[in-house]
């Protein structure tokens, strides 16, 4: 690693305020020279914002507000909300526990074929979730590659259980955590760990005391994204886990089902999901913004 690698290192005066852009990623005083936004960009930017925001406005306007409390406190809605929050929390934890180390390996490992691994991790982002669900089913289903062995040896079947919901969510959310965290790890480029090593820190100690504190914002933003993705997960869950109140029917599955018979109920539940999502983003926003920068 030479200084010449860094695009900023050869910069002139305008780079000087952030000579060490990664030295303290949590430093709020970090300043970047601002350049005006070309006027032309405002039009597509407004269109993009409208496309994202207006459908939610549509939901709000279409909602049957007087019936809202009744629609949201039904047994099925409360069960679905509870199940969604619990499974999304467990899945996010799994993403951190398993995806965190994977991000470290991808960012710092020196193994041939890392690029292939990285593309593999991105797979759930590119695949339609329902395809992921089918893939999980043919791996872990009762007649699947691993599932049939689990069934024969331990009498365990995974589909139709809450475990299946968690697996489906972890599958689709994993790339969000790994990509965010890997990005955060990369910006550090291991310099601080290298210094720690010269001071006698073992790799594990350096990871714990130097790397982890540095990438906490990235980890937080990745976790928030993963949690949000878990909450919204539908396709993989419906294909792999089925749909039963209290066991596998999360909020998105209930929305999809209610839409068949009670459109008002579906809209009320959709708004509930919107509120939960907004809360998640609001709680984590400052960290998220930093982690993604």
């Amino acid at each position: 690693m030479t200084r010449g690698d860094r695009p900023g290192a050869v910069g002139g005066k305008e780079r000087s305020p952030r000579r060490l852009p990664v030295a303290n990623p949590r430093n709020p005083a970090r300043r970047v020279t601002t350049v005006g936004v070309p006027r032309l960009l405002w039009i597509p930017a407004a269109a993009a914002l409208a496309l994202v925001a207006l459908p939610v406005v549509g939901l709000v306007l279409r909602a049957d507000w007087p019936r809202m409390p009744e629609l949201l406190t039904s047994d099925s809605a409360l069960d679905a909300l509870r199940l969604s929050l619990v499974t999304a929390a467990i899945s996010t934890l799994l993403c951190v526990v398993l995806g965190g180390p994977l991000a470290v390996v991808l960012a710092r490992g020196r193994v041939p074929g890392l690029r292939v691994l990285r593309s593999l991790v991105l797979l759930p982002l590119v695949l339609p979730p329902v395809v992921g669900g089918l893939a999980l089913l043919y791996l872990l289903g009762r007649t699947g590659l691993v599932g049939s062995e689990l069934n024969a040896w331990f009498g365990v079947t995974i589909p139709f259980t809450t475990t299946a919901v968690v697996l489906a969510q972890t599958f689709v959310a994993m790339p969000f955590l790994v990509v965010s965290l890997e990005g955060a790890l990369r910006t550090g480029r291991g310099r601080y760990e290298a210094i720690a090593a010269t001071l006698g820190a073992a790799p594990g100690y350096a990871l714990r005391r130097v790397t982890v504190p540095l990438v906490l914002p990235g980890l937080a933003s990745g976790s928030v994204l993963a949690f949000a993705r878990c909450l919204g997960e539908f396709g993989a869950t419906t294909a792999f886990a089925g749909s039963l109140q209290g066991t596998t029917r999360t909020l998105p599955l209930l929305v999809y089902l209610e839409r068949e018979s009670d459109v008002d109920g579906a809209i009320a539940l959709s708004l509930l999901l919107v509120v939960v999502a907004v809360l998640v983003i609001a709680v984590a926003r400052p960290r998220t913004a930093e982690g993604l920068s």
Binding site: F160, A239, A241, G242, S243, L244, Q245, T248, R249, Y256
Partner: peptide, 9 residues
């Protein structure tokens, strides 16, 4: 064990 949203599922 499951109540699916459509008959094909």
């Amino acid at each position: 064990v499951s109540e699916e949203a459509d008959v094909k599922s």
